[in-house]
């Protein structure tokens, strides 16, 4: 108990930081589920490719230690764009190769699942064969300065970057989906695909756009992850992917705001779980949450709402 009191503010800060990354990942699962009613299990590799893209950009720029001032901002913009572009393209590619051919043949969801797993292995192995199976370190991009304290908790620059960066991306996505014509097209397909087509919506294009958006969010998550944890690996997406999926389910799969709530909730739950039991129990706590939610409330905290009242 005493431990928990000391650990309270540090856990809030760490839980929010990891939660922000989970939330960005959860958006990809939820967006795709919203329009296609399928879980894109290859989304973890979409993330993995993003981490490599920002790492290679750092190598190409010759970064070995944290740059300062204007240069730092330029570097961040470049690695962010690289990660988003790579993840976005891979996500769109996955849809083209693994899902679209099946969709045109009205295949079962089991076929989609198997196709997704195949795609995951393929991408992992390509990176494993090319870059090995060991952890690959990132050069430091951001000085990890202590900015300020909240209670006993220390707010460091990299943690603040992760949370603020993620919030900005979520805000942009929310505005896009709820405030633009294309975003309306996505919601229309999620709510009623046939009627969306009757209104002139090109469903295939909306699906491509949805994968692209989910990929871009995963790319942002990948850049933030690389900056924060400073490592990557061919299978780095596996655990993050399951956490993102758990967060999406926890918030209510198909529900964009639910993904945000689910992400932060999961980050906090597992960090506090680690503080109460032991740090090694973090993943056990997270996956217990997944099992519990699926058993007790499969529609999550907010329920499906991208399509609202679809039943």
């Amino acid at each position: 108990m005493h431990n928990l009191i000391i650990q309270f503010w540090p856990s809030v800060i760490d839980g929010t930081t990891t939660g922000a990354i989970y939330a960005l990942m959860a958006l990809g699962y939820t967006l795709v589920y919203g329009v296609l009613r399928l879980i894109n299990f290859a989304h973890s590799e979409v993330f993995m490719v993003g981490t490599f893209a920002s790492l290679f950009t750092l190598h190409a720029l010759g970064i070995t230690h944290a740059p300062g001032g204007i240069a730092a901002i330029g570097v961040f913009i470049l690695i962010t764009l690289a990660a988003m572009a790579a993840s976005g393209l891979v996500a769109v590619g996955v849809e083209r190769v693994a899902y679209r051919p099946l969709r045109k043949r009205n295949s079962t969801s089991l076929a989609n699942l198997i196709s997704a797993i195949g795609m995951s292995f393929f991408l992992q192995e390509v990176f494993a064969l090319r870059y090995g199976r060991d952890l690959i370190p990132f050069p430091r991009v951001l000085q990890k300065n202590v900015l300020f304290h909240i209670g006993t908790g220390v707010v460091r620059s990299d943690k603040l970057l992760v949370v603020v960066g993620a919030l900005v991306m979520m805000f942009i996505l929310d505005r896009f989906v709820n405030g633009t014509r294309l975003g309306r097209g996505i919601r229309a397909v999620a709510q009623d695909p046939s009627t969306a087509m009757l209104m002139g919506v090109n469903i295939d294009r909306v699906i491509t756009l949805t994968f692209l958006l989910g990929g871009i969010m995963a790319g942002a998550a990948a850049m933030l992850y690389g900056t924060f944890y400073e490592v990557t690996q061919y299978n780095i997406g596996f655990v993050i992917g399951i956490k993102g999926f758990t967060a999406a389910v926890l918030g209510g799969i198909g529900n964009i705001r639910g993904a945000l709530i689910g992400g932060f909730a999961l980050g906090l739950i597992e960090t506090f779980g680690g503080a109460i039991f032991h740090a090694q129990w973090v993943d056990v706590v997270a996956f217990s949450v997944l099992v519990l939610v699926l058993l007790v409330r499969p529609t999550g905290i907010l329920g499906e709402n991208l399509q609202r009242a679809r039943a």
Binding site: R187, A188, Q191, T195, A196, L198, N305, Q307, A309
Partner: peptide
């Protein structure tokens, strides 16, 4: 048929 409005909009 059956209106098919977008219920969440």
């Amino acid at each position: 048929e059956g209106r098919g409005i977008f219920p969440g909009m």
